[in-house]
């Protein structure tokens, strides 16, 4: 447990030291949101709003998460290998990336709302499913980035491997977003879509914990 916290701290320090990476992603979000605003104006239907928002966030996530294993050099990897257990490494990466992704998501949401306005969502379904979706995408992409980095850090490979894995999660989140547009939804529906999101997140994390040690050893 202490190991995990130390590793998260290390990732956080690295992020602060290399500010340009985070700034680049933020600039990317700002510019795409601006382009969307230029081409659509404020008036945009709800489905389009959801779709564009997730497309922007998805590419931001690819950029943000893909460097989590890519930035580790071979020598540094060896060093981690000697001091930390693989399970704590993958858990720390997942937690760190989830935190990064959730904060990135809320930042982009704020920007997006600022430029394009906000449809009437049911807050009880919207925010929890948003957070769960961000966590799911971040943890799945963490695992994919680990796979891609052992295959030689190819950026195109990351996208190719990531999409089939991310699509189920994305579909679920978009579905519950659409559901939260409904004015009178039943409590049962809310619980159902949130538990299915929670379930898929849990499966991804469990799979990552089981499979990562096989990737790590050399």
């Amino acid at each position: 447990m202490k190991e995990i916290i130390e590793l998260i701290k290390k990732d956080f320090l690295l992020e602060i030291r290399q500010k340009y990476a985070l700034n680049a992603i933020l600039l990317y979000v700002v510019s795409t949101v601006f382009v969307v605003q230029l081409s659509f104006g404020r008036v945009i239907d709800e489905t389009g709003w959801i779709a564009l928002f997730w497309i922007i966030l998805l590419f931001a996530a690819f950029n943000a998460v893909s460097k989590s294993f890519v930035q580790e050099h071979a020598a540094r990897r060896l060093y981690y290998f000697t001091i930390a257990a693989p399970v704590s490494i993958v858990l720390s990466k997942i937690i760190y990336n989830s935190l990064l992704m959730v904060s990135l998501g809320f930042l982009s949401l704020a920007l997006y709302v600022l430029f394009l306005g906000m449809p009437d969502f049911n807050a009880w379904l919207f925010y929890p499913s948003f957070v769960l979706g961000c966590i799911g995408v971040a943890s799945a992409l963490t695992m994919v980035s680990a796979i891609a980095s052992s295959a030689g850090n190819n950026a195109a490979l990351m996208a190719v491997l990531g999409f089939p894995v991310v699509i189920p999660m994305l579909l679920l989140v978009i579905n519950s977003f659409k559901l939260s547009l409904n004015e009178n939804i039943l409590l049962l529906q809310v619980i159902k879509s949130l538990t299915s999101l929670l379930l898929i997140d849990a499966v991804v994390v469990i799979l990552a914990v089981i499979l990562f040690p096989y990737l790590w050893r050399k």
Partner: peptide
């Protein structure tokens, strides 16, 4: 062999979930 085995298991599990929930959505 190792990397592709890991990806195979990871993708198959998510796919099963996906195909299981998709028609219900």
């Amino acid at each position: 062999a190792r990397v592709s085995a890991v990806y195979n298991i990871f993708a198959f599990m998510l796919l099963v979930i996906f195909l299981g929930i998709l028609p219900r959505l």
